[in-house]
């Protein structure tokens, strides 16, 4: 990728596990654009010079219709094949960078965007503002929510961008490869100080990160524990934990798995599904359950508390469900 670093540093230094793949695609498509543009330019110069208007060449000589059809169709076929290759390359790489990895080693960070700052909450409960500390080499899964308008989480060095839309809970991920400080910017215009809605992603060696995490004397309980406390306060367990499984579906082993709904369709139990189910319980009714049982919690829990509840349910992903 040294080519891309010359002479202007076309792309910022790559710093995530997926940025190399993206850079390769960028390089390829730029090469195609450059070649085609140069070809068109060169063709124009040659045509203007060679066919210039001069005594003896005052009128054009027309074209043979058979040649026209052959070359036009050939040109369409050629562009279609090139475009198909580019499309496939873009889609395959997109699939790779969008697919959120799972596993025990994943670090879940809750991200809240509001005009005009980013705040973060680590699984341990530690909170930070305008700075996100993460360990190198570990998958960081971001759970993004917005308190007001649409923002966009953009770290150029990671080639990562995800709009943060109010009313949804989005998931994004990265695995930083090298320690360092990387710029995080809001990419979606969000009002007066949009330009200043920036933060730093500080990538540290894993042991430095552990040290940093231990240093924090933040008294907050860990995310999942805080979520558990809120869960109990709201008495969600009355239906979701009872052994009489008729009132509400169990939450153990739910996160990240497909859920069959009453209308026969299936939906992935991701962040957004959980958020939606808390705010609008009757939007998706799980197969074998009745609607109209659970009240809406919209207005009773704010965005931060939703992130806590979702963190708690997520922590149950690998728990054994009580069999009905």
């Amino acid at each position: 990728m040294t080519l891309l670093a010359m002479p202007f540093e076309v792309l910022p230094a790559a710093a995530s596990a997926t940025s190399g793949a993206v850079d390769l695609v960028v390089f390829l498509v730029f090469a195609v654009i450059g070649l085609v543009s140069l070809g068109v330019l060169l063709a124009m110069v040659v045509l203007v010079v060679r066919n210039r208007r001069r005594p003896g060449n005052l009128t054009g000589r027309g074209h043979d219709p058979a040649t026209i059809w052959k070359t036009e169709l050939g040109w369409c076929a050629l562009t279609a094949v090139v475009f198909l290759c580019l499309f496939t390359l873009g889609a395959v790489t997109f699939d790779r960078i969008e697919r959120v990895p799972t596993g025990p080693d994943v670090l879940d960070v809750a991200v809240t965007a509001k005009r005009w700052m980013w705040s973060f909450q680590h699984p341990s409960g530690r909170r930070e503002l305008s700075q996100l500390h993460v360990p190198a080499g570990r998958v960081v899964r971001l759970h993004l929510s917005s308190e007001d308008v649409i923002h966009s989480f953009y770290v150029p060095a990671f080639r990562l961008k995800q709009d943060v839309v109010p009313g949804w809970l989005r998931t994004a991920w990265f695995r930083a490869t090298a320690p360092g400080t990387y710029a995080l910017a809001c990419a979606e215009y969000c009002g007066t100080e949009h330009a200043l809605m920036r933060a730093d992603v500080v990538v540290m060696e894993p042991h430095v990160y552990d040290h940093w995490l231990a240093q924090g004397d933040d008294p907050r309980p860990p995310l999942a524990a805080a979520g558990r406390a809120l869960f109990q306060k709201l008495d969600c367990g009355a239906c979701h934990e009872t052994r009489l499984r008729r009132r509400a579906p169990p939450l153990e082993g739910l996160y990240g798995r497909p859920v069959t709904l009453r209308d026969g369709s299936s939906v992935l139990a991701d962040d957004d599904y959980l958020r939606r189910s808390i705010l609008r319980p009757d939007a998706d009714i799980v197969a074998d359950y009745q609607g109209g049982v659970m009240p809406t919690y919209a207005g009773l829990v704010d965005d931060d508390e939703l992130l806590l509840l979702v963190a708690y349910i997520r922590s149950l992903a690998d728990a054994e469900g009580v069999s009905p």
């Binding site: 792309l11 960028v26 498509v29 195609v32 654009i33 580019l86 873009g90 150029p156 990419a187």
Partner: peptide
């Protein structure tokens, strides 16, 4: 350059 933006993986970086 519009084609570059139509490529999914590339657009993630270049969008907005």
């Amino acid at each position: 350059t519009g084609l570059a933006l139509a490529m999914l993986a590339v657009d993630v970086h270049l969008h907005d």
